[in-house]
Amino acid sequence: MEPNNQQAYDRGSTIFSPDGRLYQVEYAREAVERGGPTVGVTTEDSVVFASYGNARSSLVVPESIEKLRDIDGQLGIATAGHVADGRRLVEYGRRFAHQEQLRYDEQPGVETVSKALADFVQESTQVGGTRPFGAAVLVGGFVETPRLYGVDPSGTPTEWAATAIGKDSGDIRESLEAEYETGLDEHSGLKVAVRALASEDRELTSETLDVAVTRESGFEPFGSEKQETLLEETEF
């Protein structure tokens, strides 16, 4: 029975390291940083999302790579990181939002859905036999007012005016910090989002870019035509 506990806090997610860190959660954040980036920007009357996703092979059908998704017709959700883990969170968000609608006959808000997702994600960092989600989500929508929330693998919900998740999210957020203004109209918000997402190693085309807007009237994913127009206007 040689004690081999040197790395124990590096294995189970429920174990703190001696300096109070949860390494598994930090590794999960790294997994998110390897995922295709998504930008979310709140405007005066909408929340806009822009995602970059590159197919690993020319044989992959581009439409099958889902980045931005509809929760309940009103709210939108974006994931970054492990796609399989992200899908689980999307499904949880959809179920939760529909249950809320059924229970209260009210459109659930962005904060409510995001915090339910946050609780679900947090549970996986504490319950035995689980690992943290290797995905982060952005939840946005217009319910009374436009709001945008992010949930990271620790299960922390944060409200943002504009933010990014996924690869280079730090750089993208810096660009957003420089360009973002409160009270942007939707079109300016879209331009800010696309410009922040663009970089030398991310070629934005109607195939790699995915755009969606959530307004008071509901969630609208942009088709390739609208995306191309947007790219022309943003000069990419």
Partner: peptide, 8 residues
């Protein structure tokens, strides 16, 4: 609720 879930 079922029809809306299906659509999403």
């Amino acid at each position: 609720a079922e029809a809306s879930l299906y659509r999403t």
